[in-house]
Amino acid sequence: MCSLCGILGCDDHWTNAVDRPGVYSRNRDSQSRRMETARRLKAVNRIASYRRLRLEVWQGRSYVLSSATGASSVFEALSHLWPEAEALAGRAFDPLDEGLIAWMEGQRT
């Protein structure tokens, strides 16, 4: 829980599942969490750069998404990422869009 605002902060996204027997998760300990967060930022930023957005982590707890014009939004759960990104960019992130597919193909090289 966030001690400042009292919100029950729980990043309940499936890629960040609570580590239980039988569950595949990289949410095991602080080291694996940090490593996965770094990988996630890299992966998301490859996509977000299509609309000139950038994702960062604030205090290891919240995500900060910012645009090239300086606008930003803060959220706690990964499940909020793409709605926030679309709101900030003012345009859709469609993984089946030819432009985004070409952008991702171009990122590989």
């Binding site: 996509i47 859709a92 992130f93």
Partner: peptide, 16 residues
């Protein structure tokens, strides 16, 4: 790559 897969599937399901 698990991380990119998770990001892609999340985006796909967000949209579709």
């Amino acid at each position: 790559d698990w991380t990119m897969f998770g990001t892609w599937l999340t985006l796909l399901l967000h949209k579709y």
